[in-house]
């Protein structure tokens, strides 16, 4: 660990946990009292950021791919075994569902209600609080799911478009069709827009619910890293060796040029915008060059601070208060860093 701006990011000297292989997913509980990580080794852990206590959960054979906390602090995990598992804050198993294919994406409905949306192979699952399970077939493997801000609709990105599901409705209630492979779905916190990264190096943005769309193309490879700022009017996109931020204020981004977050020495593997509050325009990126970088809300031509982790930074998440970041690397280490506002 080194860097000129140590004061801006202070990483703990020892990892919170070691999971054996690349950490595919990191998530904070809504109150910041716990974080969770899943690894391609199959291991899933809950870690307490204050005392460092680690709870090891049942593994997902051949790889854990995603973890997600519910608003009331239940943890869902999904993996290559096709299993979606829900545990409580102490790691006690609550429920389990096995589907066919990998589970690559999970999302809890915002607010109350406790509905978990999951992508398992070519199926979309809506799992109600009481245990009732709805399964919906998609035309191909679902790469990503995300809820509308009001928690009414779950979007599912697959080859052929975005399908929107509502609880209790057998068929999709809406579809944004696109002949191409869609990989990563992200709904803006404003609730007005949804962005999706494509296999073909473009980002498509749809207005909810008119379906009006626009496309940012010309990226070098497939787009899997997308993040909205907390007010939902700036979209950041991770690419081969940079992050571009598009502003959706006024008439933008049509005809505008994006802000480029410079200084990356490899593919951007993860990125996240700070939560609302002080320093809300900060962005953290994790890169294949083994560095974690912090960018301010103003001059983004170079990072405000960076730390050398020594292994590709594969996944990361801001704490709910925005004063720390948990991140996982390609060697399976889960780290915690304090970040200045």
């Amino acid at each position: 660990m080194s860097g000129l701006h140590v004061a801006r990011i202070a990483c703990r000297a020892e990892p919170l946990a070691e999971l054996g292989d690349r950490i595919a997913s990191v998530a904070w509980a809504s109150d910041g009292s716990a974080l969770a990580a899943g690894s391609l080794s199959g291991q899933v852990v809950i870690s307490d950021p204050t005392d460092g206590a680690v709870i090891e959960l049942a593994a997902h054979e051949l790889g854990a791919l995603t973890v997600a906390w519910s608003p009331d602090r239940r943890l869902a995990s999904g993996g290559q075994d096709g299993i979606v598992r829900i545990v409580d804050r102490t790691g006690e198993a609550l429920a389990e569902h096995k589907g066919s294919g990998w589970c690559e994406s999970l999302a809890w409905a915002p607010g109350g209600g406790g509905c978990l949306g999951a992508a398992v192979g070519a199926q979309v699952i809506l799992w109600h609080d009481g245990g009732q399970l709805e399964t919906h077939d998609a035309p191909s493997t679902v790469a990503s799911v995300a809820w509308s801000v009001d928690g009414r609709r779950l979007g599912a990105a697959a080859y052929g478009g975005i399908l929107w599901f509502e609880r209790g409705r057998a068929a999709p209630v809406s579809a944004f069709e696109w002949k191409g492979s869609l990989l990563a779905l992200s709904v803006s916190p404003s609730g007005k827009l949804v962005a999706v990264g494509t296999q073909e190096g473009s980002v498509r943005v749809h207005r909810l619910w008119t379906g009006d769309d626009l496309e940012m193309s010309g990226y070098t490879g497939r787009i899997t890293e997308l993040a909205w700022n907390s007010s939902g009017d700036v979209l950041s996109v991770g690419d081969a060796d940079s992050v571009t931020s598009w502003t959706f204020r006024g008439r933008g981004p049509a005809g505008s040029r994006p802000d480029v977050l410079g200084g990356h020495g490899g593919r951007v593997l993860s990125l996240a915008c700070a939560p609302s509050g002080r320093g809300a325009e900060r962005i953290i990126t994790g890169c294949a060059d083994g560095r974690l970088r912090l960018y301010s809300g103003t001059d983004r031509s170079a990072p405000l601070a960076e730390i050398d982790v020594g292994a590709a930074v594969a996944s990361l998440a801001w704490s709910p208060t925005g004063d720390s970041v948990a991140f996982g690397d390609a060697e399976g280490r889960l780290w915690l860093a304090e970040v200045a506002p």
Binding site: E215, G218, Y219, A240, S242
Partner: peptide
């Protein structure tokens, strides 16, 4: 709309 993007 197809926008020109900076990087590549």
């Amino acid at each position: 709309l197809v926008l020109a993007v900076g990087p590549s």
